[in-house]
């Protein structure tokens, strides 16, 4: 975890500047918000966020808890890393599962879009309300998707958690307006200006622990609806004729395992993963089912409160 010291006139590298910007943003939130929280999804962006938070506040531990809005359908390897990182960082880990979704048995096999809506979008709102967090760090990046390219770093939410893309606060220089009325909250995106390549390279340089699913290994998978899905536990409902086969696959993005597509790969090291990523011809979010509905689907989801 060393950052090379530049000589007086040397240029900072783009990663040093991005790191400094993200740390600055996190400190602003801690200084101005009453009760911040960091959303922790266990993915590679969350891994970088947690790492940056530890740097920002060292030698203090990050002065906020981690919140995992759990759908109960994540990969087993994600739960393992989550618990390990919470232990190592000395931070409090809050796990929230929407009780209504649990009671109704909402699952990715029977409920399609409702699954994401109830467990993630509703679960997140409920968790923020329950604990009274007024600022929540998220790991969204502007290079991920078109509507995210326009979202502010400090993104204001109404008391109903809604985002109004036409009424965003102007954000100049590195001055962030964190003021809000009671009940309103702010989503903060400290890695807004990072790209997927920046994330991978930073993980590589800083040796940040990530879920092993990002590296290729023989895993049991089935082909379904154009996606390669991993059979991660016994809850997976095989359709007639489906037989899991062992293939060398890895994941470019991690979510609920029955909804997350794997790619066939032999990349077992970070440079190999980066190499594949750079030479690939499809964008990152293609592995997720929710973005394909229509061109503006992410913008709609965000207005409703999806991160």
């Amino acid at each position: 975890m060393t950052t090379p010291t530049p000589s007086p006139t040397s240029q900072l590298t783009h990663l040093q500047r991005l790191e400094s910007e993200s740390i600055h943003i996190m400190r602003e939130v801690v200084a101005e918000a009453e009760k911040p929280v960091m959303l922790y999804s266990v993915g590679k962006d969350s891994a970088v966020m947690l790492h940056l938070a530890r740097k920002a506040f060292y030698p203090s531990p990050p002065p906020f808890p981690l919140l995992h809005v759990d759908t109960t359908w994540k990969f087993k390897a994600m739960y393992e890393l989550r618990d390990r990182m919470a232990r190592e960082s000395g931070m409090e880990l809050l796990v929230y599962q929407n009780p209504e979704a649990a009671a109704r048995g909402i699952n990715p096999f029977d409920h399609g879009g409702l699954h994401t809506d109830m467990w993630k979008t509703e679960g997140l709102k409920q968790a923020l309300d329950k604990y009274g967090f007024d600022a929540a760090f998220g790991g969204a990046r502007r290079d991920e998707e078109k509507s995210r390219a326009k979202e502010r770093i400090f993104s204001f939410r109404s008391a109903n958690h809604r985002w109004d893309p036409k009424n965003q606060r102007p954000e100049l220089w590195n001055l962030y307006n964190a003021r809000k009325a009671k009940g309103e909250s702010i989503r903060v995106f400290p890695i807004s200006n990072w790209t997927e390549l920046d994330i991978w390279q930073y993980i590589h340089l800083e040796n940040i622990p990530i879920v092993p699913l990002y590296f290729a290994a023989k895993r049991p998978v089935v082909q379904r609806d154009g996606l390669t899905i991993m059979v991660d536990d016994e809850r997976f409902r095989l359709r007639p004729g489906e037989v899991p086969e062992m293939k060398s696959v890895r994941f470019r993005t991690l979510g609920c395992y029955p909804l997350t597509g794997a790619v066939e790969s032999e990349a077992t090291t970070l440079p190999q993963v980066i190499q594949e990523m750079l030479l690939t011809t499809t964008s990152e979010r293609q592995g997720r089912a929710i973005d394909h509905d229509q061109a503006a689907s992410m913008e709609k989801k965000k207005q409703e409160g999806y991160f």
């Binding site: 010291t5 530049p6 007086p8 040397s10 900072l12 040093q16 500047r17 790191e19 400094s20 910007e21 740390i23 600055h24 400190r27 920002a56």
Partner: peptide
């Protein structure tokens, strides 16, 4: 040993 403008 040293830090410069642009560093946190």
């Amino acid at each position: 040993e040293q830090a410069v403008a642009g560093q946190s």
